[in-house]
Design a protein around this nucleic acid. Structure first.
Lengths: 156, 156
DNA sequence: TCCTTCTTGTTGACACGTCAATCATATGCG
DNA sequence: CGCATATGATTGACGTGTCAACAAGAAGGA
């Protein structure tokens, strides 16, 4: 009998998949909840503030910011709108390209990031790093790399 | 000099964390996009249909359904509302408890699940299982378990 | 220049998730 | 019984994410 190319996951593989995706989701949710509790920031807020904090002049073109956080422009636009209403960032017109917008970190935004940063790092350590042995951490990295490579290989 | 209890992740650990969370998120998004394309179902739809499909009489008390998919009742209520509008499920009053509601799988819902099931399993295999070596799959399981145990240990 | 085409960014509609409030019914205790 | 409390479920408000449509300026060639 000929070996047929495998098409479906086994029950065991499926179970591993479900546990994996549910656990990562629970992890994400717990991190988000803590960030919200301790700093009144969403993960999106944090990502944007971090990118601006590390940017030259604490400002970025909208597209560049989208690229750095890895979002579509539309998503960023909504996010920026909400953050501007709360005073965390400010929009400015771009001098070199009148279509463009620049996103600028406000003092309030910088302060919010400072307040959030250490508790957030602590949480990452407590919920992720401290949960794994050094070997497991290495394995996690390798698995991540394998998944990502596989994923990006597919959409080309 | 005394050893101080480690409080923050190293830059390396932080990088691993960020890659990990971003990759699992990308994976989740790709699975969701395929499910949507191929079957016009969201992951939430799929989870609910699956739970009902496996339930005695293809019906469940609302609370029980929420427990099986691991959601809050509120979230389920919204989801059920959307699915009922599309005819995938139906709400019925509960005989034994007049506060209660039962969620019933409709023929349309059952059909939608059948259509979605195989393509979804194929996608899980293609995007997750096939990306990893057997060793990595085992490692993924162990990491998942470690993370979950750690997580549940904390909120007690 | 004029016209097409690309890029930048915004908007609106809608699905989704969380939280707090609400409502009705069940339950348990005096 | 009568009342406080718990439970089952829904709702509304709001933040978030995706998608498609759009507006307006930039770029580049005929």
């Amino acid at each position: 009998m000929t070996a047929r190319r495998k098409e479906f996951p086994t029950a065991e593989e499926l179970r591993i998949w479900r546990d994996f995706i549910e656990t990562t989701e629970a992890l994400r949710a717990e991190l988000a909840a803590r960030l919200q509790r301790e700093s009144s920031l969403s993960p999106g807020d944090y990502a944007v503030l971090l990118a601006l904090r590390e940017a030259e002049g604490r400002r970025l073109r909208s597209s560049e910011l989208a690229a750095r956080v890895g979002w579509e422009r539309s998503r960023l636009s909504h996010q920026i709108g909400r953050m501007e209403r709360r005073g965390l960032i400010r929009r400015e017109e771009c001098v070199t390209d009148s279509r463009g917008a620049e996103v600028v970190l406000t003092p309030e935004g910088a302060q919010a990031f400072r307040n959030a940063s250490l508790p957030h790092l602590r949480a990452v350590r407590e919920l992720f790093v401290a949960a794994l042995t050094p070997d497991q951490l290495v394995a996690a990295q390798q698995i991540t790399t394998a998944l990502r490579n596989h994923l990006t290989a597919l959409d080309t």
